[in-house]
Structure formats: structure tokens, C-alpha cells
Computed example of a mutant assay.
Amino acid sequence: MATSRNWLLLRGLARGVGHWGSFSEKIQQHFPNDKFEFLDLPGNGIRHEETSPIKISEYVKDLRARCSYVQKGESFQVLSVSLGAMITVEWMKEYPHEISKATLVCTSSGGFSPFYRRFIAGNIPKGLKLIGREKDETFWEKTVLGMITNSHERREEEIGAMIEYTKRYPMNPQNVIRQMFAASRYRFPDSAPGDVRLLGSHGDRLVSPTCTLKIAEKWGVRAEMHPWAGHDVPIDDPQWLLEHLL
């Protein structure tokens, strides 16, 4: 009988558990013997009325208090995207015996990459259009998905559920700013904090793909790069991501 593994999944900037879309079911089907926990960052998803911290270490503190594996003293591995990956790195650095492995998707680090690569300037006008439109869930999701995905077919498959999720748990723009501030200040350690796999995409239009490659160079690890997906690889090509998990 296969050994059961514990997984924690963390999304990134302004995205809640529901924004994993159909990937949340696909990963559980792909690893039927494993256990999964999906947690929202403070300010996102079911926690949308809370205030997001402005320090990555505060996200670690918050999520550790909510993680069932931590409560039980069980080790686990993490799949995390973007801001979620930054939180994972800090978690591994602060509590090296808790996270056994981590897959970090489309993330970046201050000090490794300049700000204009960590957030591609062409997205600023699109982001500004979201201000004051958080109650127009259809506009919000179409705009966001247009920035972070490249597959029109996959967007159409997922957008209906995404809109309904955002209606239930709307994002506070002030929390978006606070999360961006936390991410902008965070610096990765000079060496990998543990057993990590880096995944990125050459088609990422939100964060330059060079950010993943720079982390790989600094840490001396290999980065696996998707040929065309956007920043949200779990939505654009869930099968590719599943095949590249540790």
C-alpha cells in the first residue's frame, strides 16, 4: 500500500482557495492516497473581511496556527503559487523540520530580481481599472484571469465558478495593496531553505519568467519552465503541473 503524504496548498496575491478551480479536485484524484489541506491567506477567500499582514513572517505565524499538520506534529509538503511561495520559503526557513518538500510556482524575490521584473509594468493600467470595481465580480474575474492566464479555453471552463466564488468572497483592494507591499519587501535566503522544486513559465505576463530562473541560479537548483502558460499555471495547464510535482 502506498504511503500517504500530507499536502498543504497555498495560493497567492488576492486569490482564495476557490481560485484553484478544478485543480483542487484534479490533484486529489491524481494522488488518491494522500491528504490535502487548502488554507486561505488572511484577507483572501473566506477570510476576505480580515486585514492582510504587511510582513511575510506574519502570514507564516497565522497559517501555522491554522494548519492541522502543525497541530498534530506531522510533516507535510507544500504546493504554493507566487505570494504563497514566498510564505512557504519563510516558513521553511523559520521552521525547517515542518515542511519536508515544497514546489514553488511562478514566484520572485527582492534582491534577486528588480521590481520591474517582479511585476511587469504592462499590468498596471489593467490593475488600476479594478479600483472601485470589486463589486462587479464578472469584470473583476475577467480582468484578473486575463492577466494571469493565457489559455482562452481554460479561462472559459473556469470563469463561471470563479465569478460565483468572488461574489461570495469579494477582495478588499486595501488588502491587495497590503499583500503587494509584503511581497515587495520580502527577500529570499541566499541558499535554498530545504528540498524545493522551482516551476515557472515562459509565458508568464504578470511576473517575468526570469525571476524563477534567477532564483534557480542563486540556489543552484534546476527550474522547470512551462513553454506557454501564464502566471496561473494550475489553471492554464493543470496536467503539466501535476506531472511536475515532487
Rank of each mutant, 00 (worst) to 15 (best):
G21I: 07
D195H: 14
E158L: 03
L145C: 04
A161N: 10
T210A: 15
S113P: 08
T88C: 01
L8W: 09
W7S: 03
S24D: 04
V17I: 10
R197I: 13
A65M: 12
W91S: 10
D204N: 09
G203T: 06
G21Y: 10
T210I: 14
G220F: 05
L10M: 06
T103K: 12
D195K: 14
H19V: 09
P193H: 13
P234K: 07
R118L: 02
I177Y: 15
E156H: 02
F76T: 00
W91G: 01
P114K: 09
R117N: 13
L63E: 05
L145I: 08
E25Y: 06
P227H: 04
E90W: 09
T212C: 14
T138L: 12
G84F: 11
A85H: 12
E164H: 14
S100Q: 13
R205F: 10
S68Y: 06
A14K: 00
L79A: 11
T103F: 10
M225G: 01
M86D: 13
T138Q: 14
R66W: 07
N150D: 09
R118N: 03
P42W: 01
E98A: 00
S82L: 01
H97S: 15
G12N: 00
R168T: 12
W228Q: 11
V81F: 15
F115P: 12
S151M: 09
F112A: 12
Y116A: 14
A216H: 03
R118S: 02
A223F: 10
G220P: 09
K61F: 11
M92V: 07
S75A: 11
R205S: 12
V17D: 00
I120E: 12
A14L: 12
G160P: 02
Y69A: 02
E134N: 13
H30K: 07
S57I: 07
R11C: 04
E94T: 09
S100P: 00
E90R: 02
G111I: 07
R133W: 13
V176F: 15
L199V: 15
W7P: 00
A229C: 04
D237Q: 05
Y95P: 00
E243M: 00
D62Y: 07
R178P: 08
S80D: 05
L213R: 15
K142P: 05
T210W: 12
M162G: 10
E156N: 06
L10D: 05
E157P: 04
T149P: 10
E94Q: 07
N6C: 06
E74F: 08
L128Q: 14
F36C: 02
A121W: 12
A183T: 00
S22V: 06
S75L: 03
R168P: 00
P170H: 11
I163M: 08
T138E: 14
T138M: 11
A65P: 09
S100M: 01
K218H: 13
L9K: 05
L198S: 03
H48D: 06
C211W: 04
R154L: 04
E224K: 15
V207F: 08
